[in-house]
Each structure stands twice: as C-alpha cells, then as structure tokens.
Amino acid sequence: MATLGQILTLISLFLSVLVVILGFSQKRHLLQATVEATSALFFIDLAASFCLLELLVTHDFSNRYVASYTDSSMPLVYILTAFWAGEKGALLFWALVQAGLMMLVALTENDAIQKGVLAIMGIAHSFFAVLMVFASNPFETFSTSSGPPDGNGMNPLLQNPLMAVHPPLQLAGFVAWSVPFALGMSSLLFGAVGVQWLKVARKWYLLAWALHTAGLVVGGLWAYVELGWGGFWGWDPVENGALLPWLTGTAFIHSAAVELRTSRFRMWNYILISLTFILCIFATFLTRSQLIHSLHSFQNSVLTPYFLYYLVFLTVGCLFVLGTRHKYLHGSPKLGGVFTRQGLILLGNILFLLLTFVVMWGTLLPKFSESKMFQDVINGMVKIWNSLNISFVHEITEPLAVGPDWFNKTTAPIGALLLLLSGLAPLLPYKSTIPKDIFRKLAMPALLSVLSSVVTLALLESQTPETKNFFIRIRSLGFLSGVILILFANFSLFVALIDFYSAIRAKMASANIGFLRALGNVFSANPRRFGGHIVHMGVALCFLAIAGYGQRTEIKDAVLKPMQSVSIGKNDLVFLGLRSTYSRDGYASLVAKILVAPKDYTDMTVRLDEIPSDVQIEPGERPFLWLVKFKQQEDAINFFLKHFSAVFLQQEMVLAEVDRKNLAVALAPRSLEAINLIPGEFHRLADQLKQVASILGHDRISLEMSKGDPLLFLRFRDGPLFQSFIQGFSMKPRFLGVSYDPSEPFKIKVIPEGMFKVVEPEVRAYPKFENPTTEVAIDVGIFSDLYLAFAKAPGSQSIMLTVSQNPFISLFWIGSFVMIICVVMLFWLGIFSRKPQVTAVFCGEVVQNVGKEGFNA
C-alpha cells in the first residue's frame, strides 16, 4: 500500500505539471484536455488519500507517518483525523483539497473561465506535490526495519473533536483563496481586467472566507475548551499567521464589492487578492519554519527552504504580472468623497491593512530584533531621542518580544473603528456625498444603540462582581474601551436591523404577505445587501462578546483542600474532592468535583430517606448546607462512615476481601491503570482513609498498607461500624460531601446531592506522553460562562483551581456561526445563480480582437 501511495504521489506531480502546461495553452481543444487532466489529478489524489487512510486504520507501523501519529489504542475517529494531524499528511490533504477545488471550478465554470485558472491552481498543486515527492512523503517507510511494534500515538491536545475539524477547515480556507487568486491572475494574463473576473470570483472568495473564518473560530473554540487558560485567542505566532490573510481577505471582499458596483479599486483588488494568497502560504510557512516559537509548530520540519522559495516565486510572479499589466488598471471613476460608502470602505481597507501590519510586526518582532542591524538602527534612534532630553529610553541589547497585552491594546482601537465603519457605511450611498436625510437615518440606530448599550452594560455589571462604582470604573482605559465597543456594536447591529425591518415592512405591505415570507423575499431579492447586514450583525455580536470578555473576573491558582471554597460572582465554588478514572480510550483522568452553590441559597425543604426520622436537620455553615444532629454519638459516627464510603470510596475502590469474623476488609483500587498513570494516586486514596481513621480514632479503625500490592487493610473495633462501612459500598450516594468533627460529636455536616450543579474539570494522563493535559469544565450560561481548570497542588488531596466568569462569551460563537452560515448561503446562491456572461472576456482569441480597450471593459 505504501509503494502504491508513493507511485500515486509521483503521478499526482506529473498530472499537476501536465495541467499547468495544458492550461496555459491558447488552443481550445487543449483546454478541454486540461479539464480531463484535472479530473485525473483529483482522482489520483483521492486514491492516494484512501491509501494513507488504509495504512492508518490497519495500523501499518512500517509507515513512518502512521508510526509517528497513531498507536493501536487510539479511537478510530482520531486515527482517521491523523490524516491531517501531521505535516506529511497535511500536505496530501492540501493537495487533495486543491485538486478538489480545481475539479469544482472545472465542473461549475465554463471553458473560457477555466483557461489559465486551472493552470495557476495547478502551479499551487505542483508545489505541494513536489514537497510530497522530494521532501516529505507521507508514504515513506522505515528503510531498515518493519517499524516499531506500536506507534507513538497522537498528541493528547489534538485528541479533541474540535481539533478533528479545525485543521481541515483552516487548510481548506487557505487553499480556497487560490481560486479567486487564480481567477484574478488569469484575468490579468489572458483576459480583460474589468469587473468580470470579480463576478465569477465572488462565490469563490465567499467560500474561502467562510472556510477560513470557520477554521479560525473552531481553532479559538478548541483553545477555549482544551488549553485551560480561559481565552480563545492567545496571539500565538501561528494563530496570528492565519489571521493575516483573513484580514487582507476581508478587506478584499469589501473593496471587491465597490469594484463590482463602481469599477473602482481595480489595481487595489489585484494587490489584495495576491497579498491574501501569499499570506496564506506565509501562514503555512510560519507553522513549518519554526521561525518563531509557537504551540502549533511542526517539529524538525525540512520544508522551510521550499516554502521560502515558493513565497519568493509567488511575490516576484505577482509583482511581475501586476507590473506588466498596470497600465491597463487605471482609468476608474473618481472616488466621490470620503463620506461615501466607497470612501468609508477604502478607509476600512486601510484599517484592515494597518491591522495586518500591526499583527505581523508583533509576530515577527522577536525575529527582526535578533538581527544586529535592527538593534543598531533602533539604538541609533534611541540615542537621538535621549539626546533631545524629552524622556529617557533604554537601548536594546537582546531580542524584543510583545505579549497579548500589546496586541490587545494596539488592535482594539483599530477594531473599534472598523466596527463603527461597519455601521456607518451602509447608511451612505456608494458614489454621491452625504445625503440630506443622513441625520434622520442616523438618529434612530444611534438612539436605539445608546438605549441598548445601557441595558447591555447593566447586564454586564450583573455578571461581574465589581464593587467599584460605574463612574469610577469608566476612568480605566480597559473599561472605557469595553463601553465604546458595546456602543459601536449595538449601533452596527441596529443599522442592519432597521434596514431589514424597513424592507420587510415595505414588502409585507406591497405584496400583502406574512413576515417570514417577506423576510425570505427580501433576502433573495438582494442577497448581497442583506447578506452583508447579517454578517455585520454577526460581527457586532462577536465584538459584544469581546467587550464582555474584557471585563471577566478571574481567580488564578487558588489552592484548595477538600471542602474549601472560593467565591466568584454570585457563586461559592466548593471543592468536594478528587476521583480518578480510566477511559477505554487509553488515558487516566483525575477529576476534581466542584460544587457551584449560589451564595444566597437558604432553602431547607428537601428531606432525604437516608436521614433517620428522629434526627434534627438545621442549616449548616457554608459550604455544608445541612447540619444533621443525632442523639447518640455512635449513631452519628456510623452515619458518617456509611456515607463517607458511599460518597468518596465506592467510585474508586472495591472490597477485595471481607472478613466478617475479624471485622476486617481489604480494599483495592478500581483501576490499576489510573494508579499507574497518575503519580501519587494510590497515596491519595490511602491518605483519604488515614484521615478518616484519625478523625474517628485509631482505636476504632486501624489501617495498614500492603508492602507489594496496591492494597489497603482496614480493621474495625465494633460490628456496627464495620457494617456501616460495608453498606456504604453497595448504596447509591445521596450526598456530595459529608464531614464529622470530633469536637461536635453528635453532628454530621452534609451537602445533599441534586440541589446544585457539580462541574468536573479533569487532568488527563496518557501512557506515551509525559505532560498531563487539562480538560476544562465550562458551565455555559446565557449571559456568562463559568470556566474552571485545575492542576494538582503539593499534598495528596489539594488542587490549584483557576476559575473565571466570562460574560457574553457565548455571543462570540453565536455571532461567528451567523456569519459563517450566511456566507455559505451566499456561496450556495452564487453556485446556482445565472452565470455571468464572461466568455468573450476570458477567451484569449476575443481579447486579441478587443485589443487594449478590452482591458478597460
């Protein structure tokens, strides 16, 4: 199978070169041959992908890639996702998606459009085929042996359903930008450079944007639920790398809309789409090159020089094509003023590029500042500055780096301005200057946004337990920027909503139809305008989430022993204890049980059957909710031991041996794998029992540990105590916590089960990976998330709990979902809409007849 795979990658390279050669030809029959070669290429890549999947599912560890990223104990779903989890598999996946898109272009566009486009996409494919054949072949086998008996397994961080979909979406997003790029370049090389190529490219750049956005959002969601630091964007170099083409691509989508409407920004659009595609390759280069240290980097990649050469080739190629065609790219109508829709879109474009520059600068600064020349230039400027005696600045002697704070501070004002523009631009006409009724148009959304911002802020305040007065907090820059973001986001939201509402009302009145039908009609009649509104609404929701997230409350690394608590927001979080489990998926989990109890809880109406009728129940001191008072001390102790066994021991230990005659038991851990994988786990279990023995008295219970096996021996003084202990192992636990204090011998403190939520963050240990992974627990709320992660603290029973209350975070996922779904719908409508008449424009022969005028069509 590996040999077949190697042959198929070689054929793939041959076919992609064939597509390039045939695709650049001027003859019509060769164009048809290009389409056939593209089909052959796609099916060969598909066959190669099936080969790799077969090697993965059959655990063929003689293949280096299979041995590096899988092992025999992994669940099938992650074995399949190993296809793109490693560098070599990702190359094959990239080639497959590229060939798939070429096939889709060949199927959905007419012959004239395919000319040049397939060839340019073929160049992109050839690059990845070259990498597979000459540098990083996924079908490479061990040359001297048949491979290890088992593979290395997949990094546990990647064994997450979101990570199963994030890489393919992100890669597909990068690849999909190649379609509008190829259309743009082919229009420059072969056809007219008017708006025709943009009409064809529109659905493709919408698809690319939707996939790219989905990739970023799913990556953010993965970081939020998997990495345990509480956020969704860490400004990691590779994250930033993926953001760069998204920013230029988003700028391109806006300026393309202007060109489609007014034929302006022609050169600008060619530059933007070229930049977007080049930045996609740059982002991939960042992941592979280890240029900047990052969480996402592939280790020991050999591809760095290849990517560098490809980047240089693309940049020089684009500059050459644009340079030779630049004289045909002028002559567009005048802008018509800054306060027009196109003027604001241009301003937005500049802001997007400024953001791109800022993010790139912050990302590459550690690399730049390594260079002596860079340090000399900066130090020269520092000397001049210091000589002016304005303020003293230190010279730099080592590489500089900036952190998330720097990125947040520099990008937030630009983001806020873009948000404001997204609200203002739809109110203005494309070409003419400010209309007379602009203030009337502005008044309603402005008024509504102020009112809704007050409500939003009140909601935000209710989620954050700040004691400081609003008017004191507003003086801090962080809070003020949050308020501004909320105001602008609401403004953008209401501009879109009001326009939608007016159009729907007019449609309902004119066609005498219901609301939903009118909504459908309005959207389908002008999907560009209303699709844009929906996407802007999604963006506004995302910014509301960012504003809310900026005001989150966080408690970091609070050290807690069992039954200790921390307070956050309106809740007390009680650490109930730890338990360990072993999963069939091959890892052991240490689970912290955390009770989320509202601070103001007072209800005492519930009474459980397990509590004898002759005892008294009173409200207990926090965190214990009930205080159960007994008449006899022995009854209290028996009650405590029975429920202690049920609550804390039953899930983790089994009665290995019961000696009723001598009132003794031997306890063994339920899972030996968990004991072996989690350091100190057996001692934790033993310590739990030691504590009980010391509380009840060693004369009542004596404990011994086995010298060789993981066994604990307990001997009881009297029969009822022994019976209570045994009973606990066979009953359903009815409490979450139970405690006995010898200084109050008649009272047992309990936390009843079922009254409040229990959340369970985990730490997972994998047999083949040294570092444990954090599995966060998120209590998702409508207005805020409670986010918990923990690490083991010194001492067998203690944890370090990190907890944060993240207001409005759900709005980010909702807003992103709205944007992506809307853009996918627009792509879908584009695929099935009437084809624009572009044959004459793209066909080489006709262009020759049209001459230079054709380029200005």
């Binding site: 077949l4 198929l8 054929i11 076919l15 064939l18 045939l22 029959h29 060769l30 048809q32 041959a33 290009t34 056939e36 070669a37 089909s39 052959a40 290429l41 796609f42 099916f43 060969i44 598909l46 066959a47 099936f50 080969c51 999947l53 077969e54 599912v57 059959t58 099938l76």
Partner: peptide
Amino acid sequence: MLEILLEIGIAVSISLATLAFVRCIVRTFR
C-alpha cells in the same frame, strides 16, 4: 469493513483517473 470500503475507493478512484487521463490524451492529440 472500513478497510474494504477504502480498498474499493482506491480501485474506483484509480479507474476514474485512468479514464480521465485517456480522455485527456485523446483530446490533446485530436
């Protein structure tokens, strides 16, 4: 089961690729 499906996939893909390549040759030298 999955292995069989993958093997069928490989066979079908290679057949379709061969067919497309033959058509490509035919069209090129027409």
